[in-house]
Design a protein around this nucleic acid. Structure first.
Lengths: 126, 126, 126, 126
DNA sequence: GTGGTCTAGACCACA
DNA sequence: GTGGTCTAGACCACT
């Protein structure tokens, strides 16, 4: 599991862990049923307090994305692809809404927003 | 000046004040050179401690968006419209970047994102 | 009397007035015995509250640089040139002390400070 | 970390803290990456309210001199020595400018200023 | 343990 | 009237 943490950006570390793992699960980069890196190991990798990792895992579990098997570890839950599609769209819409609300308030046109979108796609598309 | 504060959303009140005022200034809804509602008055309006408002104003001043005239009050600074255009674009790009990065990871197409953008514009455009 | 006030620099306006007038008196640019611009007139010139000018004048008076003649106005006090010489040197030493203390702490050499002094002299010498 | 605060000199305590810490960092007396005394501890040492210390630390952070690690503490940021050199010179020039402007106005020669500088160096050089 | 936020209320400097 | 500073003490989030 590959995670990058920014210790200086102000976003709580446990949030960064949650966001990154959630994204990887939703993107299918971590497959269903696979066991997650253990708390201790991930904490060591990220040079972070184990409590922080544990907290992130607990929240992902309560979100239904992870399943705990006592004495064994945490595993990626099985989600219907319909559920994943829906959740993906919700995540994107949530953020896009912020963009559009601000843009409207600033008097920035829909066309301009789409232009910026195209540029960003060129930049981040693999 | 019309501000709405959510006391229970977890975002610090002074941050909410900063964000809302910054947006109003960037959107031109508060005109240059105009005096802001006084600390005490805004604090009373929002039912918040004056220090909280004062902190927000102080940070907006250090950001260059406000100017202090001692013993008189705080005023909206004069900014070149080029500067404002640039700052507006940076704000929007910052948020849009999150959308695109996630979308690429989820395998959501540029076309789909633009469709959602159009829908949101229909919804929020006045 | 020519004074320039910066309304946005954070230094109290009455302090700016005091500093500028004191300097002009010490530099002999305002001659002994001459009457100062009236409070009202100066306040109008500087677009400042008359109370502010009045306060500045009062402090210069208590410093011994001005003399009040009731019903007439404020006048530049007569100072021995020895007194002025001494006071000038005290003013300069006071500020230079700050420079040297900082420079020593920063490990900046005496030579370097003298170089900067020379440059500044070139810039500000008439 | 050794700080001395004057509670009666009129300069805000948080400003005094900022100035002293900034100087110590610029002078290299506090090394890069080192953790600062905690807010509560420094507040106790100085017999000052923790908020006052916190405010000072926050401003030093926004200045880029400190870095926050959440839940851990504040650390001295890593700055390029070129950056520090530049900043040091700016600080000194700022104060020296006041000296030279006054000196020119008083008719005090460059030579005299350099003599006073030499004397002050003898006095304050360790 | 760490720092961040907020309150209620005081006092001050400035205009 | 304006904003700025400080206190004492509370509660919260993060590690």
């Amino acid at each position: 599991m590959l995670l990058e943490i920014d210790h200086h950006c102000g976003i709580p570390i446990y949030r960064q862990i949650i966001d990154r793992i959630r994204r990887q699960i939703m993107a299918g980069q971590i497959q269903e049923g696979r066991r997650l890196t253990s708390v201790r190991e991930l904490a060591a990798q990220l040079r972070v307090n184990p409590m922080t990792v544990s907290k992130a895992y607990a929240m992902l579990e309560s979100e239904g994305l992870l399943e705990r098997r006592r004495g064994v570890g945490l595993f990626v839950a099985k989600l219907s692809s319909a559920y994943k599609d829906q959740k993906r769209q919700i995540i994107l819409e949530e953020i896009l809404k912020q963009v559009v609300v601000s843009a409207v308030q600033f008097g920035v046109s829909e066309k301009k927003i789409k232009e910026i979108t195209s540029e960003l796609y060129k930049k981040y598309k693999p």
